[in-house]
Design a protein around this nucleic acid. Sequence first.
DNA 1: TACATCTATTGACTAATAGAGAATAGTGTG
DNA 2: CACACTATTCTCTATTAGTCAATAGATGTA
Lengths: 126, 126
Amino acid sequence: MPRRHRGWAMGAGGGGGNRHSPLTVSILEPALLIMIKERPRHGYTLLADLESLGLGTLHPSVVYRTLREMEVLGWIRSDWDTGQTQGPPRRIYQLTDQGEGVLKNWQNELDKTQDTIQQLQKRIQS
Amino acid sequence: MPRRHRGWAMGAGGGGGNRHSPLTVSILEPALLIMIKERPRHGYTLLADLESLGLGTLHPSVVYRTLREMEVLGWIRSDWDTGQTQGPPRRIYQLTDQGEGVLKNWQNELDKTQDTIQQLQKRIQS
DNA sequence: TACATCTATTGACTAATAGAGAATAGTGTG
DNA sequence: CACACTATTCTCTATTAGTCAATAGATGTA
């Protein structure tokens, strides 16, 4: 089963189950950082919150992996949740100081991206 | 030399030469389609035009490869330029009918992305 | 207690993409 | 001819992403 990325835009409305575009994946990282900064959360919650952002097509393991990798990089830190849980112990993630800095870079990038997309949208309308 | 993507946001303002974010790469495909639709062009020109969009950090081979792959997919078509050139013959790309459809999908995706980013920006300001 | 179900997270395997550098090649200029 | 500039292609390898399966605690229920 091909999981094309290049070529994503062909099957978006056509074929079987709809997959997300590469853009979706690219936004995952800042989205997680922003939500974690808002309020420390665990992966399962973040998974649901991504849904409400329209990034809900991402496979859980992609999200968990991203979280683990960002922790290795020192952008976020996790502690085991001591409160009662309806399941196995879960990691609560919070932003580190380094993560704050990284998030600032990401904000600049998001701004630039907004700008670029807007330019593209204008160009196509004329 | 590591060409990290995950981890991009660390070195953006810090280390050596600045690389682009994954977002930049994700936008390349629709950007090319839009510019080609505006006016058929060859790769070298597109390369320069990307610059003015703020996507100038992309390596030429990435851009040429993307063009070739989009041609294989049937989204664009190329003819050798018959006019005089100041160099070797060059391919002029133009959008196909299929490419028009793909571009529409991309436009939806760009809209959605604008939306998501805006939501994220709002959330971080409060 | 055996079993299903829901909450949570992790691991392993492989396909696909991206980044870099070098190769190829035509044209014009000193 | 050597060099610079225009233009495109190729190859090699690092990195990322997608999928599936495994692990595991808690809760309910037959």
